[in-house]
């Protein structure tokens, strides 16, 4: 599961890039998270895990960090399972 989530984030911010390089970086500040990355990320999360994310309902800081994006996906998946 961890690997799949990482793959999705990787695809969104540019393929073939080692995520560890981005662990401590601010994705928005560095210009990595932009319109296209955003679209790919949200669409992939919905397609692969069948969970819905409305970006406006997510604290904006989440999109700055790889760690927080991971946490968000886990949290939403748990919520979906409970239902």
């Amino acid at each position: 599961m961890e690997k799949e989530i990482e793959n999705i984030i990787q695809q969104a911010i540019g393929s073939d890039i080692d995520l560890n390089e981005y662990i401590n970086c601010d994705l928005i500040e560095e210009g990595i998270m932009d319109s296209l990355s955003f679209i790919i990320l949200i669409q992939n999360i919905e397609d692969k895990f069948n969970i819905e994310i409305s970006p406006t309902q997510v604290p904006p800081d989440v999109w700055r960090s790889v760690k927080k994006i991971k946490e968000l996906i886990y949290k939403r998946m748990e919520e979906a399972n409970e239902k």
Binding site: S35, L36, F38, I39, S54, P55, Q57
Partner: peptide
Amino acid sequence: PTFIELLLCDKY
């Protein structure tokens, strides 16, 4: 179109 795709990401 990319801009609308971005807005459409959100169901609201």
